[in-house]
């Protein structure tokens, strides 16, 4: 039996039309997530990973715009929905833990009431008292003392505030939660506990999670499948073991080789040369070629073809293209 696909992104393009040129932040990206999966989207700053998340929330800030492609969420094509209709889906079908959200809680409102407000707005409860009751339940789920619903944000630690934000994202029981760097700015021991909580809830409730991060070790710890994004494109995808043990794309290999580990023999780190490109004028051909140590002449001229077994297991790199493909190119 095939499990239900919660999210399908097809050939999505999201561009920012700035005065200094068009920024191709998401450029022909496809991605899918099944019910109950924890999928990681890995990329560096400027790779377009957060823009992709905003597009799935239909919250791309101007001058950005979805140029083409489709986003299908729980069977509904949200690309063409009106703002009004999208508003009903946000939080109830898809919610997001924004980067640094714990610092954007309303400082003069009890945290429980902030959750009750979300519930009230979406008509899930009739009054604040009922909303607080549900907030208490949610607090238990995310590992907070239910009495904390009466606290103000300044009375909570960073880790506790992040748990409030997670509770808020879960309030309307969405099918998909997008977590954008949910643990940056937290201490290592707190980070580990927060990720455990997200993973446990995801397993218990069967919710799907899209984890957006630049932190590879974190991805190795919690995710089922991984998409690697570079300069607006998905360059490689596969299940977590494949990505870490048999990576194919030179960028994926480079990222893994550049990350130190505290276990195993001490290895020499190999830094990736250069910096990610400006997405107003990405390099022609393969966007990674200026930083790639395997670059061939063709990489500078033509975009690499996709090779692999399907939409969940592929690499886009000339090294893996068959000879006949190269000849045609």
């Amino acid at each position: 039996m095939k499990t239900a696909t919660i999210l399908e992104v097809e050939n999505l393009k999201v561009y920012y039309f700035t005065q200094r040129g068009v920024v191709r932040a998401v450029d022909d990206v496809s991605l899918e997530i099944d019910k109950g999966e924890l999928v990681a989207l890995v990329g560096e700053s400027g790779s377009g990973k957060s823009t992709l998340a905003y597009a799935i929330m239909r919250m791309v800030p101007p001058p950005g715009r979805i140029v083409s492609g489709r986003i299908v969420l729980s069977g509904i094509d949200i690309t063409s929905l009106s703002e009004e209709e999208v508003r009903k889906l946000r939080w109830s079908k898809v919610s997001m833990i924004f980067q640094g959200a714990m610092n954007s809680l309303n400082p003069v409102m009890r945290v429980g009431d902030q959750i009750a407000e979300v519930l009230l707005y979406h008509g899930a409860v009739y009054d604040v008292e009922e909303g607080r009751k549900i907030a208490r339940e949610l607090f238990k789920l995310v590992g907070l003392d239910p009495e904390r619903v009466m606290s103000y944000p300044h009375e909570l630690s960073g880790g506790q505030k992040q748990r409030v934000v997670i509770a808020m994202a879960l309030a309307l029981n969405p099918d998909l939660v997008i977590a954008d760097e949910p643990t940056t700015g937290l201490d290592v021991t707190t980070q580990a506990k927060i990720m455990d909580t997200i993973r446990d809830i995801q397993r218990e409730t069967g919710i799907s999670v899209l984890l957006i991060t630049h932190d590879l070790p974190l991805v190795a710890e919690v995710s089922d499948r991984v998409y690697v994004m570079y300069a607006g494109k998905i360059v490689e995808t596969g299940d977590v073991d494949k990505i870490f043990y048999t990576p194919q794309h030179p960028y994926t290999k480079g990222l893994i080789g550049a990350v130190p580990s505290h276990i195993g023999p001490k290895k020499r780190l190999i830094a990736l040369p250069g910096e990610p490109p400006d997405l107003r004028s990405p390099p022609p051909g393969c966007r990674f070629h200026p930083r790639c140590s395997y670059a061939m002449p063709i990489c500078k001229r033509k975009e690499p073809p996709r090779t692999g077994t399907g939409p969940r297991d592929f690499v886009e790199c000339w090294l893996y293209a068959g000879e006949e493909v190269k000849k045609v190119a």
Partner: peptide, 21 residues
């Protein structure tokens, strides 16, 4: 506790490790 909280770029190791909390 600190060392066991560090994420490890090794999925199999990560699945089996015990954390001191």
């Amino acid at each position: 506790a600190l060392v066991s909280s560090i994420p490890v770029p090794d999925p199999k190791y990560a699945r089996e490790k015990k954390r001191i909390e």
